[in-house]
Amino acid sequence: MKKPILASVALSILAGVTWAAGDDKAIQALVDQYISTGYQQGDKQHLERLKQDETLKICSETRNKPSDEQAKAIVEREKASIKYPEKMLGSWEKGKEVFNTGFGMRVGVIMPDKADKPRGGNCYACHAADPKEVAAGNIGSSLTGYGKARGNNETNIKYTYEKIYNSQAHVACSNMPRFGANGVLNPEQIADLVAFLIDPASPVNK
């Protein structure tokens, strides 16, 4: 009598496992289906924005906790995307503006932005920087005193440029947008941001 019960328990556990895996797949299939029907159609909608690259697929599936192997692959792939300008340290005055400006890029038909609206990084949404700006968000770390603390040298300039251009070149599945790789900011704007963060004359380091 004991054996059949045990066997049936084992069977139902097995069934549970297969069901769970099949369940995940079924949920993912519905996710894809709902995304394909969830947005208005048409040229103005820029539906190409809904297409995930391999990196975001992994970050979504693992909820930003990729395995070591996945993380290594992401960092390698994202690093390869970086384009460097002649000078990675631009003008802190221009960078101050880029850091502050919330950008356009809204699409659709209900309330889109004008296509030529100047873009910025909207960095204060998440980061503190110039101590005089009190309306700073806290999703990202505080960057006040960044250059003073981390140094005005080639290594830090390159790291900072890379971090803004493609945050995932250093931390796989970082929460931060890949500003350069996604074409939100151009290399010159990023170099200006680097100067705003590192230049000793910038208010960030006063």
């Binding site: 369940d23 949920i27 993912q28 519905l30 996710v31 709902y34 995304i35 924005r49 809904l50 297409k51 995930q52 975001l56 970050c59 979504s60 909820r63 930003n64 890029m105 999703i139 929460n175 931060m176 947008p177 890949r178 996604n182 074409g183 939100v184």
Partner: peptide, 20 residues
């Protein structure tokens, strides 16, 4: 469950999900 998965789904030019 689908809503939860969508909550963590990252996409768009800013790589955001709801969870960001």
């Amino acid at each position: 469950k689908v809503g939860e998965a969508l909550f963590y789904h990252r996409t768009g030019p800013l790589d955001f999900s709801c969870a960001s």
